[in-house]
Amino acid sequence: MNHALTLRIGPATFRIGAAWPQPIAQLQRLYAAYPDVTGQVADFTVRLQPTSMVRRWVRPSIFITGDHGLADAAPMSLSHGLLAAEMGMNLQMALGWRRHLLLHASSVEKDGCVLVMTGESGSGKSTLAALLGERGWRFMGDEFALLDLDSGAILPFPRLVSLKNRAIDVVADTVGQAHMGPLLAATAKGDIRHMVPRADAVARMGEGAMPALLLFPRFGHAPDIRPVGQGEIFMRLTQASTNYVALGEPAFVALTRFVRDVPARAIDFPTGEDAIAMVERLWEERA
């Protein structure tokens, strides 16, 4: 690869190579505050390569691959190169990470305890984590929460926050344009803009903490808070984990402990402000 950089996010190190300079330059700007791990051995390699020789120059088109890849991954426009790099890193974690149980969830920490939020794309878990990260919580991650198999702690994976459509303006108004990446218009998931986590989230990205509350957020509905049965929680978390099956018995033990020990609620909310008020109240009441 002609252009490359090495990034550490939480416990994982990625070497990202690209056939073009633009995605790497964007990553360098947005990850400038992350530790310099140049020259270190990476856990994973991500490659952004042309879908064919011609597509390097003419209507440049990216094929995302690396140590782990999907043969039928849809090609992406070079203008979405930053998103391709982020997707490439997610792909490596989802398919290759074995040191922790991976939960498709966002997480934030306060008072030494972690709030975990899991849901489908569009549930509001990324936006909520980003907004809470601006209001006295430590942002730990918007995509993957890493559950330690021995201690039961949640470890951070604070990559750039991926914000979609209406969430972009809500968060950009709060954090300021200097902390935002370029607008990636009309991707497969709509408009996307990345947000740089606060400095404390990056400085403390090696610090885990015990989970104290699990939420299943759902954006765009009338306010509601519901209990969730443990069986349903277990089932939804196994569906939200990319490596539960691969990790075997240790994952079963860690996840059942999580389900039994961590109180959980489903929350519906019409706006981010409503959600934050609900989260703060549930956090106070959790004991």
């Binding site: 443990q230 069986g231 099956v245 018995e249």
Partner: peptide, 22 residues
């Protein structure tokens, strides 16, 4: 089997197959 009761459900982890049964 490794078993774990969750409210009215029981989870069974079957070591030989690596499958979890509810």
């Amino acid at each position: 089997l490794l078993s774990c009761a969750l409210e009215d459900l029981t989870l069974l982890y079957h070591r030989r197959s690596g499958q979890t049964h509810m």
